[in-house]
Design a protein around this nucleic acid. Structure first.
Lengths: 195, 195
DNA sequence: GTCTATAATAGGATAGAC
DNA sequence: GTCTATCCTATTATAGAC
């Protein structure tokens, strides 16, 4: 199998997914059609279907692409100091300014509610993210026992699901409220959690 | 205009909406069709269309019905003591055990992301809910200045959007994670906020 | 007011040429 | 590998009878 062709296929695949992501971000999952994606990509029906089996598969691939991209941004740097709850959230949420993720995330949630396959993908991402949060928070609690109590691990495990909620909360309020104050939200987060 | 007919029309309308809500809760917005709702309601196409102009209108009505029903449950009782952040959330989240709202809420969010009319409805509900939260929190902070600082109103305003996030966070984790521990989540909420 | 039957359309998917 | 043309199904919406 020639390497050039393989690379070309991969590039084209990604090109299609990028187009699909734009369409889904503009119109939602329900509001998007394969013809729209075909038009956006500049390719033809035949080409699209030779890469992906249909709208559902296309969406799953976009979901994986989007979530993987996002969650990879938050990977912890083992060399740097452990981050406080507020710093963690600040870093995560600041990567979401005007991003397509703001529109696409709710589409994923809605599909996850009714499609087991999408739910499985989302579930994995949630688990990866919360696990990363828990690890970071444990490390931070280790160095701040005065603010988090005697058992850093227990504290981190308890707090993680609550802190995690700040992500969908941010996305939804950002999306919905015209006068949502992002900076105030971040400040309040820092204020709410030990720092 | 005879009163019986008016009441009958209203009852039938609600009957249709209840059926539509069940269908949307099972299949999501995208996965639901008008024929499904027709079947679920036990009525006919003609009957449904004589009450509602189509799937979109049907969904908007279901959204309004669902959100209004939910948010009315949280209205504060002026006679009782102001509730702490944890108590407030406990009361709100405990009304969501296995409810259709768990599936429908994400459908609403997804549509809100792309449909201005749905977004407007959701926005109003968010504003009503956060305003109610803010009022309750201010009242509580008034009686607990030692835990909330000198300015109860400022404290409540800052904390409200963060506390509010606990609602979508609960719904999403409840929906997605098989081993989500609701009680631990509520406990952690109480622990996180002043109490 | 409600029913059944059907028209109209859109969207998903494929076949076959280049 | 990609394109154009086309088929097919599902879904929306309506017309006309009861």
């Amino acid at each position: 199998m020639p390497k050039v062709t393989e690379a070309h296929r991969e590039a084209r695949r990604d090109e299609i997914l990028a187009a699909a992501q734009r369409v889904f971000a503009r119109n939602g999952y329900r509001g998007s059609s394969v013809p729209m994606i075909i038009k956006e990509s500049g390719l033809s029906a035949g080409a699209i279907y030779s890469y992906f089996d249909g709208k559902e598969v296309l969406f799953r691939a976009v979901v994986e692409r989007t979530l993987e991209l996002k969650s990879s941004q938050f990977a912890s740097d083992p060399d740097s100091d452990p981050r406080s709850p507020g710093e963690l959230m600040q870093q995560i949420l600041q990567g979401m300014q005007g991003e397509p993720i703001l529109t696409i995330a709710p589409q994923i949630w809605a599909e996850a509610a009714v499609e087991p396959e999408i739910r499985a993908v989302l579930s994995q991402v949630f688990e990866r993210l919360t696990s990363m949060l828990r690890t970071e928070l444990t490390a931070w609690a280790d160095t701040h026992p005065d603010r988090t109590g005697a058992d850093p691990q227990a504290w981190a495990a308890r707090i993680t699901p609550v802190l995690f909620s700040a992500i969908p909360g941010f996305i939804l309020q950002r999306l919905t409220l015209d006068d949502f104050d992002e900076q105030a939200y971040l400040d309040a987060l820092i204020d709410t959690y030990p720092h």
